[in-house]
């Protein structure tokens, strides 16, 4: 499949391209996305998936919609986020971690060096010689976890931990139909 091919719908409208990624998240938002179940079949009539854990494409092409799960805890997260922003016309912060840092941000009042030493080196029960991982392939951690709107412009926020499948479906339909997304009572949730 050519990931950058532009395809048409039977009614002449262009098929939209959708990319998704999980940064400092738990993939719970992606699992909730999959919870739209058979509505996925309706969705793929309207959109083609670009870079996403669902396609396993490694590079992102020009997209209409980018869904970003998770906040920023490493330099790699920042790099991927900037690539998404540069390639997506509409960028969406999906879930608590992308929106306010979420659970990973609860380390923000602690010293990163002390956390790493406590977890990997000094904790009781570790093997002798245990040390803080320092492989050059590991992305450097940020001192504090940040929500994504602190680094790039975010067009919409889709809250929830995770947002329910119904909230994701309602939100995507609004976007695909050219409406400003609106989540009413029961769909707008922070937990």
């Amino acid at each position: 499949m050519n990931p950058s091919a532009s395809r048409k719908l039977p009614d002449g409208r262009r098929k939209l391209r959708l990319a998704t990624t999980s940064l400092a998240g738990c993939f719970g938002c992606h699992m909730s996305f999959l919870d739209i179940d058979e509505r996925l079949l309706t969705l793929i009539e309207r959109v083609d998936f670009d870079r996403s854990p669902f396609t396993d494409f490694k590079q992102i092409g020009h997209c209409d919609i980018g869904l970003v799960e998770g906040g920023l805890c490493s330099v790699e997260n920042v790099q991927v986020l900037r690539e998404f922003r540069a390639h997506c016309r509409t960028l969406v912060a999906v879930g608590a971690c992308a929106i306010n840092g979420g659970l990973p941000a609860q380390r923000n009042h602690l010293d990163l060096g002390q956390i790493l030493a406590e977890v990997y080196r000094d904790r009781p029960g570790l093997a002798p010689g245990s040390a803080v991982p320092s492989d050059p392939e590991l992305p450097l951690l940020l001192n504090r976890v940040h929500p994504i709107h602190e680094v790039v412009q975010v067009d919409y926020f889709l809250p929830g931990c995770p947002p329910s499948a119904d909230a994701i479906w309602s939100f995507l339909n609004d976007l695909m139909d050219g409406r400003t997304p609106h989540l009413g009572h029961g769909l707008i949730r922070y937990d």
Partner: peptide, 15 residues
């Protein structure tokens, strides 16, 4: 915040 339609924090987090 639900009733006001607040979906995101808009400002930077203080933590």
């Amino acid at each position: 915040a639900y009733a006001m339609g607040m979906t995101g924090p808009h400002f930077e987090e203080f933590y």
